[in-house]
Amino acid sequence: MDRQGKVSGVEQAIRSYYEEAQVAERLVEAVLYSVNAGGKRIRPLFFLEMVEALGQTLTQAHFQVAASVEMIHTGSLIHDDLPAMDNDDYRRGRLTNHKQFDEATAILAGDSLFLDPFGLIARADFPAEIRINLVQELSDSSGTYGMVAGQTLDMMSEGKLIDLESLQTIHANKTGKLLTFSFVAAGLVAEVSTDVLTKLRQVGELVGLAFQVRDDILDLTADFEDLGKTPQKDLLAEKSTYPALLGLVESQQFLNHTLDQVQNLLKEIAEKCPFQAKQVGQLIESLRLNG
């Protein structure tokens, strides 16, 4: 299946979940407003590409898992944009959820997108043990031990000088954990060995690191048209970023070195199990600034 087909499958899985029945129409409207805003769908794409690379044929259950991680991500963007957080008016080139609706509705839409993915995974046609493992992994990646913790540390660090190790801790959780889920989840549904699952987790962690370094560079160098949101927000909020700590050129070199490490790990995985790395490798390469 080509990449656009995968994206369409993920979006349809989300819409199907919310169109089954509606208790509060305005809530669903707000949820789908942000879901339908577009985006790269990088997290579900990594999951689906990895599933295929590990020899699995994609089914509706795979799309439901892919949809679950995109729902969590979308909910986090709604909350990130709120006045109490990043206070942004635009996301993906159009009004943020709280500007299109209102602050209370945006909070509730984010709440739905944080909670509903677990029900979606519970419906997926996988053995119970796999579904339980997926739920645990997504919870750990998203909540107190992952994304939400990283977001808290990020807010606490605003206006402060922090070192590189502290910055990496923030982003390993804020950005890295949810990206790591995509790779670990693919290993779980493909039932790979413990050794391969460990390497998939390492791949995800490095991809998460690279993704954040890239985002920091683009926040500094890209304009609104390219970003779809207000540029240089990190600079205005006095947030520590990789360019601020390392310099712009060094950050670009760090990004490329991190992606090289990912490609080497994919080769190691291919030595341990049947693994077709081409499509995944291309998606990795797209994260380079000249990708």
Rank of each mutant, 00 (worst) to 15 (best):
G9N: 13
I14F: 10
S16R: 09
Y17G: 05
A21L: 15
V35K: 00
N36M: 13
P44W: 00
M50K: 08
G55V: 05
Q56L: 13
Q56N: 11
T59A: 09
Q60N: 15
H62L: 11
A66W: 04
S68C: 12
S68I: 09
H73Q: 01
D81S: 12
P83H: 08
A84M: 08
D88R: 07
Y90K: 06
Q100I: 13
E103F: 05
A104F: 02
G110K: 09
G110Q: 03
D111Q: 05
S112H: 15
D116E: 14
P117C: 09
I121G: 03
P127G: 13
I130D: 02
N133P: 10
L134S: 02
L134T: 03
Q136S: 12
E137Y: 08
L138M: 11
L138T: 02
S139N: 15
S142H: 02
G143P: 06
T144Y: 12
G150K: 00
D154S: 04
M155C: 11
L161T: 13
E165L: 12
S166G: 12
S166H: 15
S166K: 12
K174S: 01
L178R: 00
L179V: 07
F181V: 07
G187L: 02
L188R: 02
L188V: 08
T194F: 13
D195R: 14
V203Q: 04
E205T: 14
L206C: 08
L209F: 12
D223Y: 12
D226P: 07
K229F: 04
P231A: 13
P231F: 03
Q232W: 10
L236V: 03
E238R: 11
K239G: 04
K239W: 00
V249Q: 14
E250P: 07
E250T: 05
F254W: 07
L255K: 01
V262S: 00
Q263A: 09
Q263G: 08
K272P: 12
K272L: 06
C273N: 09
V280E: 00
L283C: 11
E285G: 12
L287I: 13
R288A: 04
